[in-house]
């Protein structure tokens, strides 16, 4: 069932297709590399002004906790005190735009090539993530808009739940993405995995 992992080089991502149990997939995974990303770190004493400018220019409220604001077009995720991750599907110049807009208020670092985004959906998504996550992902606990910087299957991930749907996004460092992909395929084989790539 998971013969793919016997022959797939450890450094390569799996090809699009179906893995594991046949039939309707229990979990679908889409890899995206077309998302611009940048980290935002508030300069000392500039937190309030930074939040004001982000609100005025982008219409987003910077959370002081592990929460997200925005949507696929532009999202801001809380990753630590005074630290956020911004993601955008339609702004290839995200980091430059933020750096010029937030000059003096925040340190901006382009992360667009640093990570690969996994969109993880499907009726068995929680069964699969439970095999690797140590945080409580119960839908009543990990609510829409919640963010967690954590480890899944010992791989560091930034995980969030974009909306009401029981579906998740996981941002994984590019060099660890093949290991994370192997976890998803090995752990999800019993549910059937539909695997695709975009961007």
């Amino acid at each position: 069932m998971t013969h793919i992992l016997d022959t797939l080089p450890l450094t390569r991502l799996p090809a699009p297709g179906s893995y594991g149990r046949t039939g309707a997939p229990g979990v679908t995974v889409a890899l995206r590399e077309d998302v611009a990303a940048a980290t935002l770190v508030a300069r000392r004493g500039a937190g309030v002004r930074l939040a004001d400018v982000v609100q005025a220019r982008f219409g987003l409220t910077l959370s002081d906790g592990p929460r997200m604001a925005g949507d696929d077009a532009l999202a801001v995720l809380g990753t630590g005190p005074g630290r956020w991750l911004t993601l955008a599907q339609t702004r290839p110049g995200l980091a430059a735009e933020l750096a010029s807009t937030l000059d003096g208020l925040a340190a901006v670092t382009d992360q667009s090539d640093a990570n690969i985004l996994f969109e993880i959906n499907g009726p068995r998504v929680l069964d699969l993530l439970a095999k690797g996550a140590t945080i409580d992902l119960d839908p009543e606990v990990f609510r829409p808009g919640d963010v967690a910087v954590t480890a899944i299957a010992h791989v560091g991930v930034t995980l969030w739940r974009p909306g009401e749907e029981i579906a998740y996004r996981a941002l994984v460092a590019r060099s660890f993405a093949p290991a994370f992909a192997r976890f998803l395929i090995a752990g999800g084989a019993e549910y059937g995995i539909g695997w695709s790539r975009r961007g």
């Binding site: 300069r43 004493g45 937190g47 309030v48 930074l50 939040a51 910077l62 005190p81 005074g82």
Partner: peptide, 11 residues
């Protein structure tokens, strides 16, 4: 408790 307060005062 956090060892230090965030650089962004009450962001």
């Amino acid at each position: 408790e956090l060892a230090r307060k965030p650089a962004g005062d009450a962001a």
